[in-house]
């Protein structure tokens, strides 16, 4: 197959028609071509996801390498009755990326205590918060539910999910006290769950 780089739009179109579940079954049978097909269809998007979280190009490629090894070795444990094949692959990549940033400690945990300590001081911060993200793609019901949240909760959840931010990193980015961020995340998740149930 010629290795011409596909444009984002054509890769998305491919992704819509690609049978991820069949490809995973083929991987489970030991067909390496199936893993290559998944890579061709999905690697650009998966690398984008990993890079946003680990924020280092070489590390993101390591994450993708390890995640594809997991796809290969765990394909037989994929259960199509519990979720989509594409979602399963994305979860392996996200989990690998999160494991790297949480385990190697992009930040020191003492930071959290420092943040708690200055909490009272920064409560006065009352500037209105700007949207941290523009939702540019059609993400359906999730979009509607995210927009029912206030901007602070929406920003917190998206900074965590898309940028791999911990509570204290979100606090820094949004210039808000750590305790407040923890409450935003918690209440935001509960509202989202209610909206999407």
């Amino acid at each position: 197959m010629p290795a011409s780089p596909a444009s984002p739009d054509s890769s998305r179109a491919d992704a819509v028609f690609f049978d991820y579940e069949a490809a995973l079954s083929a991987c489970a049978r030991g067909e390496r071509q199936a893993l290559h097909r998944i890579y061709q269809i999905e690697s650009r998007r998966l690398l984008g996801v990993a890079l946003r979280i680990v924020r280092d190009r070489a590390l993101a490629e390591d994450v993708l390498h390890d995640a594809f090894m997991n796809v290969w070795t765990k394909a037989s444990s994929f259960d199509a009755t519990r979720g989509s094949g594409r979602g399963w692959i994305h979860t392996l990549v996200r989990n690998q990326a999160l494991s790297v940033v949480r385990t190697t400690g992009r930040e020191v945990s003492a930071d959290e205590e420092a943040m708690e300590a200055i909490e009272a001081a920064s409560v006065a911060n009352a500037a209105p918060m700007a949207e941290a993200f523009e939702i540019s793609a059609d993400i359906g019901r999730l979009d509607e539910c995210l927009h029912r949240l206030d901007v602070a909760k929406r920003n917190s959840i998206m900074l965590a999910y898309l940028d791999g931010c911990s509570h204290s990193e979100i606090a820094k980015r949004l210039n808000a006290p750590l305790g407040t961020v923890k409450a935003w995340v918690k209440r935001g998740l509960l509202s989202l769950r209610e909206c999407m149930a």
Binding site: P8, G48, V49, A60, S84, G87, H90, D138, L142
Partner: peptide
């Protein structure tokens, strides 16, 4: 995982080496 998965559509794809 299923509910939040659509957020991946917001991520800019990156060409692997």
């Amino acid at each position: 995982e299923a509910k939040l998965a659509p957020l991946a559509e917001l991520v800019e794809p990156v060409e692997p080496s």
